[in-house]
Computed example of a mutant assay.
Amino acid sequence: MRMSRGISLFLLAFGVWSWIIWTTFVGNLWDSDDAWTADGSPTSYFIVHLVLAIVSLVLGTIIGVLGLLGLLAGRRRDHESAKPGQS
């Protein structure tokens, strides 16, 4: 399957955006008063949102890697098509 350069860039940007947003969210979650009980153990609120963030980071990484692979494949195709004597 071939992806256009625009789609590849979009997927890569989505992966980067996902990392920026979710790492910021996890930092804020960690510092939240709602994340910890009085004895210092995590609340269910913390656990649910941490799982959500981890899943989102994994999916964002996969999507970003697909975008990067699409860009690299496009460059490889462009490079091969630019060689003299080939059509």
Rank of each mutant, 00 (worst) to 15 (best):
Ser32His: 08
Val55Leu: 09
Gly6Lys: 13
Phe14Cys: 07
Ala82Lys: 06
Leu57Phe: 03
Ile47Asn: 05
Gly64Ile: 09
Trp30Val: 08
Ser87Arg: 14
Leu66Glu: 05
Pro42Val: 12
Leu52Ile: 06
Phe46Ile: 06
Leu71His: 02
Leu52Ser: 08
Phe14Asn: 14
Leu69Asn: 12
Ser41Cys: 07
Asp33Lys: 15
Thr24Asn: 02
Ile7Ala: 12
Ser44Asn: 15
Ile7Thr: 13
Ala82Gly: 03
Ser8Ile: 03
Pro84Thr: 06
Ser41Ala: 11
Ser41Gly: 13
Ile20Trp: 10
Gly85Asn: 06
Leu59Asp: 03
Gly64Pro: 00
Phe46Trp: 10
Thr37Met: 09
Arg5Phe: 04
Ala13Tyr: 03
Gly74Ala: 09
Val65Asp: 02
Pro84Gly: 03
Leu69Val: 10
Thr24Ala: 04
His79Thr: 12
Ser56Phe: 10
Gly70Met: 04
Thr43Phe: 07
Thr23Asp: 02
Thr43Pro: 11
Ile7Lys: 10
Trp19Arg: 12
Trp36Arg: 12
Trp22Asp: 08
Thr61Trp: 04
Arg5Cys: 03
Asp33Met: 06
Gly70Asn: 02
Leu57Ala: 05
Ile20Ser: 08
Lys83Thr: 01
Val26Asn: 00
Val65Asn: 03
Arg75Ala: 12
Thr43Trp: 05
Leu29Asp: 00
Phe14Pro: 08
Ala73Gln: 11
Gln86Val: 15
Arg77Val: 14
Met1Val: 08
Leu52Val: 02
Phe25Thr: 03
Ile20Met: 14
Asp78Val: 00
Arg76His: 13
Gly74Phe: 01
His79Cys: 02
Gly15Met: 06
Gly67Met: 04
Gly64Ser: 04
Lys83Gln: 10
Gly27Phe: 00
Arg5Asp: 11
Ala53Phe: 01
Ser81Thr: 14
Met1Asn: 15
Arg2His: 13
Thr37Asp: 08
Trp30Asn: 10
Pro84Asn: 01
Ile21Ala: 08
Lys83Ile: 09
Tyr45Thr: 09
Trp36Ile: 06
Asp39Glu: 15
Trp30Thr: 11
Gly60Met: 05
Gly67Val: 07
Thr61Asp: 07
Val58Glu: 10
Val26Gln: 00
Leu68Arg: 04
Leu66Ile: 13
Arg5Leu: 08
Trp17Arg: 06
Ser56Arg: 03
Ala38Phe: 12
Trp19Val: 13
